[in-house]
């Protein structure tokens, strides 16, 4: 189309160019800006590198030791896949999974620990989140106290809670459940209260206008808005807790971890790989299932 190309040419002709002096000033300003940003990036890199060096010395990081002993890693991994008889594990799955019945039972116990921990912790988080959210908290100081409490619950690692609880409650699944529950309450309490802080306040005003007290207001105005998000976070947490429950046995708090750590310590290589395979497969299945459920939940929310 000749007309169009003509108009392009005309456009090109009418693009105004700045006078040289002004343009030079702008270019200089731009260059300065770029240089400043580059300096900042370089400074950042330098700081990270310096910290890495200092921390490397502190953590006794020794690359030469790693390189010299890397053969031990490969031989360790190699031995994981060989039975005592010298056969490859895949060739004799029955021998590899000789303790399948026992392990599956322990795996079931692990899942139940994760389930109980998630439910108990989730219920605690559900109640506390409305007290910790700024927009629904009945009073400022309560909001502050609950928030600090939740922070402590999620900052102390669950294994540390488990160690203390094992001494208090004795060996078994109970300390594992309680440790997971407390940690879950802290982690979910924070996420839940963030959800609550993002709700639409109009239903709350509406219910409040009818003369409802605090609990009915939360029940009828806030809970319906947050329930699907809460469930989605709880499902995510369940998956994390399954991983957590799998290592609770390291400190005697129930589940499959006990057998795993024993196999690692006593160098029962093929047992280690068999138990690890079971854990990894279970975690992956739960990962997929909860992801499905979460998408379904959030999708339904979006449809409404």
């Amino acid at each position: 189309m000749p007309g169009q190309s003509g108009s392009f040419a005309a456009m090109g002709a009418t693009v105004p160019t700045l006078p040289a002096g002004q343009a030079a000033a702008l270019i200089r300003a731009y260059d300065l800006q770029v240089a400043a940003r580059r300096r900042q990036t370089l400074l950042g890199f330098a700081v990270v590198a310096g910290l890495a060096l200092v921390f490397g010395v502190l953590a006794e990081a020794d690359p030469t030791k790693l390189v010299a002993n890397i053969g031990r890693l490969t031989s360790y991994v190699g031995r994981l896949f060989v039975l005592d008889s010298g056969q490859l594990v895949l060739l004799d799955p029955r021998e590899w999974f000789w303790g399948l019945g026992k392990w599956l039972k322990l795996l079931g116990e692990t899942l139940l620990i994760a389930y109980l921990g998630t439910v108990i912790g989730g219920l605690g988080a559900f109640v506390l989140s409305f007290l910790a959210a700024r927009n629904t908290a009945p009073s400022g100081w309560m909001c502050f106290v609950v928030r600090r409490f939740l922070e402590v619950c999620r900052t102390v690692p669950e294994i540390v809670f488990a160690l203390v609880f094992v001494v208090a409650f004795g060996l078994g699944a109970l300390p594992g459940v309680l440790a997971l529950a407390i940690h879950t309450m802290g982690a979910l309490g924070k996420l839940f209260s963030e959800v609550v802080e993002n709700i639409d306040m109009k239903p709350i005003d509406g219910v409040r206008a009818t003369g409802a007290a605090w609990i009915p207001t939360i029940r009828f105005a806030a809970v319906p808005q947050v329930l699907s998000n809460f469930t989605s976070y709880a499902l995510l947490r369940f998956e994390i807790n399954v991983r957590g429950a799998a290592i609770m046995g390291f400190v005697g708090a129930g589940g499959i971890g006990q057998d795993l750590v024993e196999a690692i310590r006593k160098f029962y290589y093929s047992d280690v790989s068999a138990i690890l395979v079971l854990i990894v497969v279970t975690v992956m299945c739960i990962d997929l299932a909860t992801e499905r459920a979460r998408h379904a939940l959030l999708g339904r929310e979006a449809d409404r």
Binding site: A61, K65, N69, I70, R72, L73, Y76, I247, F250, L260
Partner: peptide
């Protein structure tokens, strides 16, 4: 999906006990 604690046990076999 392999936990940090399990990795730690594996690496202890390679580089010995300690922060590394």
């Amino acid at each position: 999906s392999v936990d940090t604690l399990i990795w730690a046990l594996v690496w202890i076999n390679v580089v010995g006990l300690g922060p590394f």
